[in-house]
Design a binder for these strands. Structure first.
Lengths: 149, 149
DNA sequence: TCAAAAATTGAATTTTATTCAGATAGATAA
DNA sequence: TTATCTATCTGAATAAAATTCAATTTTTGA
């Protein structure tokens, strides 16, 4: 057994998919060549970043989802963009935003369970530049990435 | 001019894409038939919900992104699942979660600008079952849907 | 240890994306 | 208005890719 599954999941999380022109052609009743032209245009403009899969995260061992709010230390020379850029690179971080208001950053973190979340949280909170945080657990997801669940 | 662009965007937000087996085959050096078998298995298990596009939201007129926190009215007979299910169906709602803590629901909303967001907010807040809300604006996005920006 | 089920694979087939050149529509400027 | 340029559209040919299938190997469970 080659256990290709985890490799597929890793690739599909960020890309390795492509438009189904023939299916779109049937759906909106336009010629494939016309759709091809318009799709390439969207890609070349940079309007489309990638094509990827959306998962039932329970089924790929990422059923535990938390919104992690972070307050950065106000310190001369510290660059919030850089810190968030680094946090965004964590494998288990689904999304990373700099936000207005009481907190500076919100991360959406997906892990298998609470234990695994605690590991991620520890590794984030022990970094330089982080003052405090609060974790808001998602109890139920009705929609993600524009896809109804 | 047929203006196919908005139709493409609408379709690509939820699906109409498919795996690039040939590219994956080259990347991880496995036979296409083997990958095909493993991918179909993931799909049949329901582990993969759909294949879709990720956008540069600025470029498709959805550059304004807000996390909208909602507190539901505590009322006998009111079903949070149903309310959230309905909110999730809004076109401009990217994600919808029921959460633990001070607030009951968080929506990620993407609109063209603040004016358009205000329209969405009004239409949500005038619904039954909503007690109060707070809007947290995303100032900068470093990652969405596991895709670095 | 052995039978059944699951997973792998090369080759054939079917389907799909891509290319391209001609046509059409839209925009621009005189 | 009309001429000219550019962008968009499209059918048909080509190239590339997904899918199927039957044979093989591996894994599972009794």
């Amino acid at each position: 057994m080659k256990n290709i599954r985890p490799k597929l999941i890793r690739l599909f999380k960020v890309g390795y998919c492509t438009p189904q022109i023939a299916r779109i052609a049937k759906t909106i009743n336009e010629p494939s060549a016309t759709l091809h032209y318009n799709i390439k245009k969207l890609e070349n403009e940079g309007a489309i970043k990638t094509y990827k899969a959306v998962f039932d995260y329970e089924k790929i061992d990422e059923g535990f989802c938390v919104y992690l709010f972070i307050k950065l230390t106000a310190k001369a020379g510290a660059d919030p963009d850089q810190i968030v850029g680094e946090l965004a690179r964590y494998e288990k971080v689904d999304s990373a935003d700099i936000i207005a208001g009481e907190w500076d950053v919100v991360l959406k973190v997906r892990t298998k369970n609470q234990d695994e979340y605690y590991d991620v949280l520890k590794s984030i909170l022990t970094r330089e530049g982080i003052e405090k945080s609060t974790s808001v657990i998602s109890l139920k997801q009705a929609k993600t990435e524009f896809v109804l669940l």
